[in-house]
């Protein structure tokens, strides 16, 4: 194979893979701490994308500047969803040994509601936002690197680093990690577990607000755009190791490069089958994923 084409494929795979990883960060964090598989993850990203779009369409705010609105908004949404919808379930099931499968169903309900409310409110038409910043591609040798995707990629890496540092260094972060390790022990040592859960959920969804703003400039926005990221985010998280923050990024990069190179040899449809196969294989052979736990 032409090494230049291969180089292209690897660079593209890394860029989009980093973005997959960034989008999956919140999913991994929420699962790691709450043991809740958030089916509404993609839908919340859709909310972030629409927020960025409307801020530009109505108030003329550049999608990159809209971060200051989308991040707090999505934090509040996540906080609210946890407090009002998921928390009652977690406390009810706390006595049971089984992992809260019902939480998956609850979030599936949230996904149905959010996606279709968006359809009712915004209509089915596709939208796109665009940045007013002039961003020519930077050249990596002979390979042009798309700036918007590069920004998304860099944000994913930075967000992951920031999240790890926050979890290690701050009081809140340590409380979250303690809760993740042993909820009951954490509660006994005076940690407000319900609050920790809500904040964790909020942080997980706030990250989607960030990526909503950053991706709005190049992803077509529709009420069911979340589906494009939904299943892939699960693959990324499982591949990297559920609950692992660096694992999420690593999983994204592996899937991104894997699909980019596979696509050079087989059609995209077969590449999709292959990455699902990879997902199953990883779960069966190495259920902990590439990286350990949180």
């Amino acid at each position: 194979m032409d090494p230049l084409i291969l180089g292209f494929a690897v660079v593209n795979g890394l860029l989009i893979g980093g973005i997959y990883g960034g989008v999956a960060l919140g999913l991994s964090l929420i699962f790691g701490v709450l043991r809740v598989v958030n089916f509404a993850h993609g839908s919340l990203l859709m909310v972030g994308l629409y927020t960025a779009y409307w801020l530009q369409a109505l108030a003329g705010i550049d999608p990159y500047a809209s971060v200051i609105f989308t991040v707090p908004l999505l934090f509040c949404m996540g906080y609210f969803i946890q407090r009002v919808i998921i928390a009652p379930l977690i406390w009810r099931e706390s006595a049971l040994v089984v992992e809260p499968l019902s939480a998956l169903l609850l979030t599936a309900g949230v996904y149905l509601v959010i996606d279709n409310l968006a359809l009712m409110a915004f209509g089915p038409d596709v939208r796109s936002a665009s940045t007013s910043l002039d961003m020519p591609p930077i050249m990596l040798g002979p390979i042009p690197v798309n700036m918007q995707r590069f920004i998304g990629f860099s944000a994913a890496i930075l967000a992951a680093i920031g999240l790890v540092v926050w979890l290690r260094q701050t009081r809140m972060g340590r409380a979250i990690r303690a809760t993740a390790q042993n909820r009951d022990a954490a509660a006994l040592s005076g940690i407000d577990v319900p609050m920790i859960y809500a904040v964790t959920f909020g942080v997980g969804t706030a990250l989607l607000g960030l990526f909503g703003s950053l991706l709005a400039t190049f992803i077509p926005i529709t009420p069911n755009v979340g589906l494009s990221f939904g299943i892939r985010s699960f693959i990324v998280v499982v591949l990297g190791g559920i609950g692992s923050i660096p694992g999420s990024i690593l999983g994204g990069l592996v899937i991104g490069v894997f699909e980019a190179i596979a696509s050079q040899f087989v059609p995209a449809t077969s590449a999709a089958i292959l990455s699902l196969g990879l997902f199953i294989l990883i779960l069966l052979v190495r259920p902990g994923g590439l990286m350990g736990k949180l």
Partner: peptide, 10 residues
């Protein structure tokens, strides 16, 4: 749990 559910989807 969720691992099984996700594998069946896949």
């Amino acid at each position: 749990g969720p691992y099984f559910a996700l594998t069946t989807i896949a």
